[in-house]
């Protein structure tokens, strides 16, 4: 059981870290651009919110399996298949949790607005300088919200994991899968422990986010 908990935390942490690196430039671009592609990219980013996880999982399975182009390339690169592996879960989670990182960040960057960045430019700060020293710290609370939500949402995923990861102990058997299996095997006591743990965890996370937003309502996402 602890194996599943640890694996879940590792997956959520890796996903959050990767999404920080992907989500930051994406959210920044969405905030600043006047490109016509913006609504299209915004839509694609939001798709995982409405699609059943099984749909996302199904297509990821098709793309990542060792017989596909990408899957074969991955096998060549690492000697391992992307499907039914931890790496595959990470890739799937990144897609699945993308909106939970990008949307709060975009809202935070939009709340910062152009004003402070123009002020920074007029004081001689170049784009990178202004981004790291003005936009990023001013959007700090957006980052906290985004990371907490991404982490929590990744912990809660089930359908996508089942599709691309299966149920391999220590490799892809995360908490939600473990609960499913325990219930199937009628081990209700074990299922209760994990489930109650998740309920408690989710409550704490959301409470944290909401009270953070309540206490500093000015720069809220």
């Amino acid at each position: 059981m602890w194996e599943a908990v640890l694996l879940t935390l590792k997956l959520a942490a890796t996903t959050t870290l990767l999404l920080l690196m992907i989500g930051t430039p994406l959210a920044w671009w969405l905030t600043r651009t006047s490109s016509r592609a913006k609504p299209v990219i915004e839509t694609l980013t939001a798709m995982p919110l409405v699609l059943p996880p099984t749909v996302l999982g199904f297509y990821l399975l098709l793309v990542m399996n060792p017989n596909s182009l990408l899957g074969a390339f991955w096998v060549q690169l690492t000697g391992q298949a992307l499907t039914f592996s931890f790496s595959g879960l990470v890739v799937a989670s990144v897609f699945y949790s993308l909106p939970f990182m990008v949307q709060p960040l975009q809202a935070a960057f939009e709340a910062v607005g152009r004003g402070p960045l123009e002020a920074a430019a007029s004081l001689g700060a170049g784009p990178m300088d202004a981004f790291f020293n003005i936009a990023l710290p001013m959007a700090a609370r957006g980052y906290v919200t985004a990371c907490v939500l991404t982490f929590a949402h990744t912990i809660g995923e089930f359908g996508v994991v089942l599709m691309v990861g299966g149920n391999i102990p220590g490799e892809t058997r995360v908490v939600s899968i473990a609960i499913y299996e325990q219930v199937e095997a009628l081990r209700y006591a074990d299922a209760h422990m994990l489930s109650a743990g998740l309920v408690l965890f989710s409550f704490c996370v959301l409470l944290f986010v909401y009270s953070l937003n309540r206490r500093f309502p000015v720069r809220v996402v």
């Binding site: 004003g115 402070p116 123009e118 002020a119 004081l123 001689g124 202004a130 001013m138 700090a140």
Partner: peptide
């Protein structure tokens, strides 16, 4: 803009709210 030797005091001040007054001036 950042390569023009121009200073700008905006009508709405536009101070950096994550920094103190000292931080703003040192920026």
């Amino acid at each position: 803009p950042h390569l023009r030797p121009v200073g700008f005091a905006f009508q709405d001040a536009r101070l950096f709210t994550h920094l103190t007054v000292l931080g703003n001036l040192q920026f």
